[in-house]
Design a protein around this nucleic acid. Structure first.
Lengths: 244, 244
DNA sequence: GTTGGAATTACTGTATACAATAAATATCGG
DNA sequence: CCGATATTTATTGTATACAGTAATTCCAAC
């Protein structure tokens, strides 16, 4: 992972500040680093994200960290509670339903456009992504597989040519990873191995309607694989006591 | 005595800072204030938003302003260019197309759900909003009318029960206001007066499919009313010179 | 041993100071 | 008088200091 090497506490030498990166890119890299960690479930829902700790790890001040956390909060990957700070969002069952309904509407609606704009190059790229995903899954790298699966859906949306809708899909896929982390069964990954390949086939054949129907079933299958029990990790004893 | 070198560091009237508001709500109020000004086109696309100026106007420091600007940037209402600061976004023709395609897909797709959840109270509320909009239009308050029109579409999406999609629609409507500001004809408002009332009728009757079709036409009509000429306010002389 | 409360601690919220850079302006050479 | 470069200025980027508040710990009393 992105090694924030020895946290040399000396941060003052302004002349040294500039040598490493444009500074702007650095922020983006850190954002992506945190975002990836969440999507890959290395940071689990509910984990607290303290500003000082992150600032130390990445070697920038809290100011920059706050900016990044705020962005993640707007994307609903982290939750910002007023005086408690940031933590990785733990999606509720309602939110999960909303997200999958939204994916149903948008991703399926995009399939005809994607089919229309699908060329050889795009198909090859997608097949490669699907291959990588299968490989990660086979070699037991579940975290990586989850992200690759999300990447696949995101790339698909980008190929529709509508940047705005692609951005929406991006957000929905990120949140889906969080949902899988909370409500998915450990051994059972969201996307079945062959689904993505089949989908590429329909799209490459220019069969938008078929792809649409397939995507609908695909998403339904993922959603159906979730076990929608709100685990109330806090004070569960109380209920047991009252029940008993 | 040696502590005499420590002058009274108090430089800010901290006691007065807190008395007025919770501080958190204040930020939200400022955010809404700026957002409304953009949506109502009192701040025109391209206008620069300097941090100091905003900080002065609202009586908070640049820190808070930056937070708000960043949020607006993520919603694509303002554009943040690296060392140039913030300005009200000027949507391109491509973006405009994307936004209206997205609205076409999402808002129309939501209509059946809205029709299903439509009750007396909701219909009455919508009718009231439509009435206010008509009134604003008649009394020449175009800015207010534009925002009320956007509010109508947003509220409609909320009634679908899907908070995630409602948020997407919210963003799309805000951006649409910007698009109208750039590409719309001055005297010609986006939403025709009677359209919204007609739509409520279909929804109240539970006729989701009819409402869907109507919404589609409604949005198409708005989009068709735009004149999609990219005014390249920058270096236009060059082309004219070379052409002439 | 548990509970209530006070003191401490840890953390976030906000403003400000300072550095860095791009834009605007002035200055000088042609 | 025009063009290129140096200087000044305006404005953003970042770190840090300080304040305020929630969480924790510790202590005493029952």
């Amino acid at each position: 992972m992105s090694d924030a090497q020895a946290p040399e506490k000396r941060r003052a030498p302004a002349k040294e500040t500039k040598n490493s990166k444009e500074g702007d890119e650095r922020h983006d890299a850190i954002y992506r680093s945190v975002s990836d960690a969440i999507v890959e479930q290395r940071l689990k829902p509910g984990s607290r994200l303290r500003e000082d700790a992150l600032a130390d790890v990445f070697g920038i001040s809290r100011t920059g960290i706050r900016k990044i956390l705020q962005r993640l909060a707007l994307e609903q990957l982290v939750t910002l509670t007023p005086r408690r700070g940031a933590s990785v969002t733990r999606p509720t069952a309602d939110e999960a339903k909303d997200v999958f309904d939204a994916r149903q509407l948008i991703e399926c609606g995009l399939m005809p456009d994607v089919a229309r704009r699908m060329g050889e190059k795009e198909a090859a790229e997608l097949r490669d992504m699907a291959r990588q995903e299968r490989q990660a899954l086979r070699s037991g790298q579940q975290s990586v597989a989850i992200r690759l699966s999300a990447d696949f859906h995101m790339r698909l949306a980008q190929l529709s040519g509508n940047a705005t809708l692609a951005e929406f899909v991006e957000r929905l896929c990120s949140r889906s990873s969080l949902i899988l982390a909370v409500y998915g069964h450990p051994g059972h990954l969201g996307c079945e191995s062959h689904d993505h390949d089949d989908l590429i086939g329909y799209l490459e054949a220019g069969n938008g309607e078929r792809a649409k129907a397939f995507m609908s079933r695909h998403l339904k299958a993922i959603e159906a694989s979730l076990s929608m029990v709100e685990e109330e990790e806090n004070v569960p004893d109380l209920q047991q006591i009252f029940g008993g």
